[in-house]
């Protein structure tokens, strides 16, 4: 069977804080190695999203300025379609600033609240410009193993009863630096603070995302194993760095 995945990359020019494109590069690589056809549609301001068309939605991080630029478009132009797609089981991965906007709202240090899509039952508050940002290497335990990455966010995210955390923090801040949670999961939508880039050096998580993306059209798919020696070495090195300093 010829497998294919269609990915909607939201606001690639605006939401691309440090290395988020590494996630796309990684997905392309892991699909190509298995003969899965991956099509990436870049959806910018004004572009509509067809909720039936996509298997995977990706949004990266951005500065406060970029979050403000996209928030009305995200909610008014794409919001309903994204919510519908997620309800129907489409996979989604939202990193950092994108994660914050997939939750209920973001209350910045100064200025008005930014409303979010409410896909994750969670909200984010920035404790003030004089409070240190959450910056550093992160190691967190997830159902499928460990996640290793780098976080850099001012806002603290708190989960409500309707969202479960993606992972439990071993080293680093995660959602808020207090309750040891990192990220959020709702259906097949995942939010996380991890850059690094995340997917290249977390190959098991990358494959988990690919399996979710394939599930809607193809059911459970066995992914051919890849030679991940280098990926696992980078994963181990990131854990070593995070836990030794």
């Amino acid at each position: 069977m010829n497998l294919s995945i269609r990915l909607a990359h939201l606001y690639p020019k605006l939401m691309n804080l440090y290395g988020d494109r590494g996630n796309i590069i990684c997905l392309r690589h892991r699909c190509r190695a298995r003969g899965i056809e991956l099509t990436v549609d870049e959806l910018d301001l004004g572009d509509r999203l067809d909720p039936q068309a996509y298997d995977l939605i990706f949004i990266g991080g951005g500065q406060d300025r970029e979050q403000r630029r996209i928030v009305r478009d995200l909610i008014d132009v794409k919001g309903e379609a994204i919510r519908q797609a997620v309800e129907e089981g489409v996979a989604a991965l939202a990193v950092c600033g994108g994660y914050q906007l997939f939750a209920r709202y973001y209350r910045p240090a100064v200025g008005e609240d930014l409303p979010g899509l409410g896909i994750f039952d969670a909200h984010t508050e920035h404790p003030g410009e004089d409070v240190a940002r959450c910056i550093g290497n992160v190691v967190a335990d997830w159902d499928g193993g460990t996640l290793a990455g780098f976080e850099n966010h001012g806002g603290r995210t708190y989960l409500g009863g309707g969202a479960r955390p993606l992972a439990t923090v071993r080293t680093g801040y995660g959602n808020n630096g207090v309750d040891k949670t990192e990220g959020a999961v709702y259906k097949n939508a995942y939010g996380t603070y991890l850059h690094g880039s995340l997917l290249p050096k977390n190959p098991r998580f990358a494959d988990h995302v690919l399996r979710l993306a394939l599930r809607r059209r193809y059911g459970e798919v066995e992914l051919a194993p890849l030679d991940d020696a280098l990926e696992e070495a980078a994963h181990a090195a990131a854990i070593r760095v995070a836990t030794s300093r």
Binding site: Y18, G19, G22, I25, F150, H195, G196, S197
Partner: peptide
């Protein structure tokens, strides 16, 4: 810089 993510850009 502690963050090596930038190499992906």
């Amino acid at each position: 810089g502690r963050d090596v993510s930038w190499i992906w850009d």
